[in-house]
């Protein structure tokens, strides 16, 4: 403790640290208020806390995506999956060239086409395609993506939806799922992707839901469930929300700004079975 004269057995002259006498305001917000000051500057203790949070967020961005772990975990749950790559060569290029992160690498494109051709029973006439990307936080993908994917796919199957194998895309952006879907042609695409880490939320996963996704679809055509992480929106809640959005998307045949999220508190996913699907 540098800014306190307690606990180190030494007397410190007064005036190095000036506490803020409005600490009670802190109960109303997680914002960094009532920090006190040394002169006018940030007390060292607070600066180091800030630095630690920033370090964690930076590490989350830099962390390499362990896609094989995701694939193994999905396999253990008997969820078929395949691995693809974007056109970004490495993390640095990924960060500065979002256009490359939105496109599949040529080899991955070939691989995908081949798989779709080889396994028609797994890919034909699908309702749902789940994509997993590292995005800006591989940490988020590692910690939550499999749980959210499997939870949602379980519910979707219970609801009678046909699900395509999960596409795990390294160095992918949100829109890379659109290109994947150009070849899978599922009705609804859910892209689970690591979000831009906040200072106190390095492990936040986002879920982008797009009905009728194709390469070039407008960004306004998506719904997003954000802040999925242990200390934020819990996995079960996120899955429930995704089921709700999926159900509504199938009913309205769209996602985006015209799909308003007004999920009732007591919403139970796919309660009415397939009845929400439009008549054939």
């Amino acid at each position: 403790m540098i800014d306190s004269d307690k606990g180190n057995g030494r007397d410190r002259p007064e005036g190095y640290f000036s506490p803020d006498p409005w600490g009670w305001l802190k109960e109303h917000t997680d914002a960094r208020i009532g920090l006190g000051r040394s002169g006018v500057s940030l007390p060292l203790k607070e600066q180091l806390k800030f630095n630690l949070d920033h370090a964690r967020a930076k590490d989350a961005v830099a962390l390499a995506f362990d896609h094989s772990r995701i694939l193994e975990d999905l396999e253990k749950l008997s969820i078929p999956a395949l691995h693809l790559q974007s056109r970004a060569a490495d993390k640095n290029e990924y960060l500065t060239r979002p256009d490359l992160g939105r496109r599949l690498a040529p080899e991955s494109l070939e691989l995908l086409k081949e798989r779709v051709k080889k396994d028609p029973e797994l890919f034909r006439d699908r309702d749902v395609l789940v994509v997993v990307c590292d995005g800006l936080s591989a940490l988020a993908a590692h910690s939550s993506a499999v749980k959210v994917a499997s939870g949602f796919l379980d519910l979707a199957r219970l609801g009678g939806l046909k699900c395509a194998p999960v596409a795990v895309v390294s160095l992918g952006r949100v829109a890379v799922a659109d290109e994947v879907n150009d070849h899978v042609k599922a009705k609804l695409v859910v892209n689970l992707i690591g979000e831009r880490p906040g200072l106190s939320s390095p492990d936040s996963l986002g879920a982008y839901v797009t009905y009728g996704a194709y390469r070039g679809i407008m960004e306004e055509s998506r719904n997003c469930v954000s802040n999925i992480r242990p200390a934020g929106l819990k996995t079960e809640e996120a899955v429930r929300k995704l089921a709700y959005l999926a159900q509504k998307a199938f009913a309205l045949k769209l996602t985006g700004t015209r799909l308003k999220d007004d999920m009732p508190e007591n919403y139970l996913p796919f309660e009415e079975g397939l009845s929400f699907l439009p008549a054939k």
Partner: peptide
Amino acid sequence: PGADDIMLNYQSTSYHDVA
């Protein structure tokens, strides 16, 4: 506050910085 915008998730300048 503390340069950390907990809503927009980015870091800007703080009250301390202004002082």
